[in-house]
């Protein structure tokens, strides 16, 4: 399919079959939309211009960059496990209102993972990773730093086991920052390939939802820890990761607040919750779209001034990104990625943790429920029928299985609200890609 869209005074054509992005003028966009069956007035385009544009369209089509037929080849998925999310601690020292993990407890008892269970999880990953050399483990919670000693010992154990097998681990950890200081910060900086630091932006926004157990805001308790950590981080990976809700649909201000505080790697996610006064509904979408545009403009302005920052969802690589086989494979949860909860039970991913219907086994048994695994293994872009007519399908690969299930009752039934935001961010990201190229070409002249 072909998607024609406009960003302010720019016009773009995205060909989904070839994953090619083109820039054109208003008349070309009009003609193409007419060609696609839209009811548009093309009287402003002269006959001579029309012939010229048609020649351009024909050349692009001949080059396989326009109206290219989309692949319908179902992906061949391997049984190799790539990554585990270790719920090292089902407890938390904060009580964030929107936490999908039920304030750390995942709808069960507050519990810490033992070192023995963590070691069994590492063994499970190594034993099920086939010929794969690089393995990934994310320390998650709850707040994983409440069980820091097990994090540390697990890292040492995994490195030792991997070295003996000719493999290598990449570790990541997500923290709210409360305990991120001194030896802990030093260890994470040395051992973690990526560290995700939770901060929602402006103090009043952060404090309204991210509260301590006694109900006080946590901004002042974490901001210096996070700043100090990023200072020692140097050029190693980190993300300052925020959540926005219905209450701060002006989240661009929060992203820019984070950037203004010296953080240059930022992700800001729409909340996943069914709490009515926080959940995003279709009523908020126009304001959210406007906000993504405002963020896009400021992002480019700062980039042009040499003061740019990295925003996770504006990063779409059409040239060197994933191959087509990967783009149609869906997210990998339940087949190549699993989460392990403190007692060793295995779930398709962190967002399914604690749901008995999705318990796939235990690291102590070492085998997986093949019926559930088959369900996830067979799920791909083509089993998500709603995606057929969507231009962003090869970017998002059918969305989040957990969101689909929690909102629509089926991992193959994409959730419309997140789809709408995904499409918007994709258009912004494509505009950014074009503008960055334009800027670098201008610099070369």
């Amino acid at each position: 399919m072909v998607h024609v869209f406009q960003y302010k005074e720019r016009y773009y054509i995205f060909d989904t079959g070839s994953s090619s992005l083109h820039e054109c003028d208003e008349k070309a966009a009009l003609l193409l939309r007419k060609k696609l069956g839209e009811d548009v007035d093309i009287s402003s385009v002269s006959e001579a211009e029309r012939r010229e544009y048609e020649e351009d369209f024909a050349q692009l089509e001949k080059d396989g960059l326009l109206f290219k037929e989309e692949t319908k080849v179902y992906p061949a998925k391997s049984d190799e496990v790539k990554a585990l999310c270790l719920h090292i601690c089902h407890d938390c020292n904060l009580r964030c209102k929107y936490c999908f993990a039920d304030e750390g407890a995942y709808h069960s008892a507050r519990e810490f993972m033992s070192l023995e269970t963590a070691k069994r999880a590492i063994d499970f990953l190594i034993e099920n990773s086939g010929n794969r050399k690089i393995l990934e483990t994310d320390f998650f919670g709850g707040e994983p730093l409440m069980n820091f000693d097990v994090v540390k010992q697990t890292v040492y154990y995994a490195k030792e086991r991997a070295a003996a097998k000719g493999k290598k681990f990449l570790f990541t950890l997500t923290t709210n920052g409360l305990l991120l200081k001194d030896d802990i910060a030093q260890f994470l900086n040395e051992e973690m390939e990526n560290v995700v630091l939770s901060l929602d932006g402006r103090k009043e926004v952060h404090d309204a939802v991210r509260k301590t157990a006694n109900g006080k805001g946590s901004f002042d308790l974490v901001i210096d820890n996070i700043k100090n950590f990023v200072k020692i981080r140097g050029d190693k990976h980190y993300y300052v990761r925020g959540t926005f809700t219905k209450k701060n649909t002006d989240f661009a201000k929060d992203v820019l607040f984070i950037a203004d505080n010296g953080f240059d790697s930022i992700s800001m996610e729409p909340v996943v919750t069914d709490i009515e006064d926080l959940a995003i509904t279709k009523e908020e979408l126009p304001a959210i779209f406007k906000e993504y545009d405002a963020l896009c403009d400021e992002y480019l302005k700062r980039y042009a001034e040499g003061k740019g920052f990295h925003f996770f969802h504006f990063n779409v690589d059409l040239e060197g990104g994933p191959c087509l086989a990967k783009r149609v494979s869906a997210c990998g949860a339940g087949n190549e990625y699993f989460s392990v909860v403190p007692n060793g039970d295995i779930y398709p991913c962190h967002q399914f943790a604690g749901d008995p219907a999705f318990k796939m086994g235990s690291v102590y048994e070492g085998k997986l429920d093949e019926k559930i695994r088959k369900q996830f293994k067979e799920s791909c872009l083509f089993t998500r029928k709603k995606c057929d007519g969507c231009f962003a399908k090869f970017i998002c690969s059918g969305g989040c299985s957990a969101n689909n299930y929690h909102f629509n009752g089926d991992i193959n039934d994409p959730y419309e609200i997140t789809c709408a935001m995904m499409r918007k961010r994709t258009e912004n990201a494509m505009h950014i890609l074009a503008e960055k190229k334009r800027l670098s070409q201008n610099e070369e002249r």
Partner: peptide, 16 residues
């Protein structure tokens, strides 16, 4: 081909 400019894939191994 001067009105339409191509802005941006390069020419399943599972290494990702």
């Amino acid at each position: 081909m001067n009105k339409i400019k191509t802005v941006a894939p390069a020419d399943g191994c599972g290494e990702c």
